[in-house]
Amino acid sequence: MKNDKSLLLNILAIAFLAVLAYFIYSVATSNDIGIKVTDNNVVENRVAYRYLNKNVLDENSKYEWGGKAEDSAANVVTSIVADYRLFDTSLEVIVLFITVMGFGLVIPKENIKIKESTELLYHWTPLLMTYMLLVGGYMFINGHISPGGGFPAGAIMSTAILVGVLAGKQTVSHTTLKKIEAIAGTLIFSIATLGFFLKGSFFINFLEGGNVGDLFSAGLIPILYTLVAFKVAAELSGIYFEFYEGGEEHDNV
């Protein structure tokens, strides 16, 4: 290592990742209730068994706007992606990260600067970027009420930075994007394993749900979608900056 400070940071990072990896391993092979990877134990622990034995003729199981529900998100797809199958979504986030890393490995760095394009595009770019960020922000804030969610919201927010690169403005630096991506990804896994200390099983939705259709409902789902949207937006924006020069040399910190 270069000096003592970088050695200490490396050891701390490896220790933190080892703790997270241990928790993810034990959620994959535990025998409690919940969703697991190794689904080979008793029939009563499987998801299909619980859903086939639900009573739909009961008076309490009506799903209407403004009432209570088991998972009070109005968008059913959202409650499957971010609450019942959160383990699969976290693996998808890992796959996206590896794809972008492989992309940065293959493209050779050229010495072409981001230069100014035509005058029309240069002066209209702030308005277009504001509009695209507005649409993306609306989509992940209302992820549990209207269609959308975190993943297309991140893709739309990254096109705002693409318009800036095509017109000649570099609005964020490359290192800021990497920091945002790292912090958001770590927070996703940390919040998911926090449920073990509060309620007893991993990847559980530990906040109280409200009524169906409110803005502040569905527990942990809006927080998770915010983090996913920022992570996806930072990753896809990092791809565009790989084509131009200006990325600093990566020190071995």
């Binding site: 035509t118 209209w124 308005l127 277009l128 509009y131």
Partner: peptide, 16 residues
């Protein structure tokens, strides 16, 4: 309003 703002810019870039 969004469509009126972006259609001329895109055709300008394509033609250029």
């Amino acid at each position: 309003v969004f469509f009126l703002a972006t259609a001329p810019i895109s055709s300008h870039k394509i033609t250029r």
